[in-house]
């Protein structure tokens, strides 16, 4: 496959063209809002495409270490396979959080919250600066 320009570079170029070339010719207010939402989403998808497999893999490893889980032996890097492993790790983390709160174990709660903090950092990088469009 031709890997360069990368997915994020292509998506950002599409977002640029949508705003610079297409949007000036859009007349309806609803369509303008939609075009601006598409531009924002496209830029978020560019950031996500560039990092999501790496971020999920790093989070899975951190959760496995914190919960003393045996790492999944699957080594496929296709997105659906990574998503399956990520979902399983997230489910284990959710269960552990509920158990720590039920036990009033503040140390474990703090440990799991630190894992969530990294997830939030990654999510904020995907989101970028929030500028809501489409609401009054």
């Amino acid at each position: 496959m031709l890997s360069r320009p990368t997915t994020d570079q292509v998506l950002n170029a599409m977002a640029d063209d949508l705003i610079a070339v297409v949007l000036p010719h859009v007349s309806g207010e609803a369509a303008k809002v939609l075009a601006t939402q598409i531009e924002q989403l496209t830029r978020r998808l560019a950031r996500r495409a560039a990092h999501e497999i790496g971020w999920m893999t790093e989070e899975i490893a951190a959760i496995d270490a914190a919960l003393d889980r045996t790492p999944d032996p699957t080594n496929s890097w296709h997105l659906e396979d990574v998503l399956d492993r990520y979902s399983a790790a997230s489910t284990a983390l959710s269960d552990a959080i509920a158990e720590a709160f039920a036990d009033e174990d503040t140390d474990r709660v703090a440990q799991y919250k630190a894992l969530l903090a990294q997830r939030v950092v990654n999510e904020q990088e995907v989101l970028g600066a929030l500028e809501l469009v489409g609401r009054g």
Binding site: Y86, S90, L93, S94, A102, L115, L116, V120
Partner: peptide, 16 residues
Amino acid sequence: VEALPIFKYVACWLDA
């Protein structure tokens, strides 16, 4: 459609 551990944390925190 996927586990949401941040939502789970918030739910438990609100209850406590």
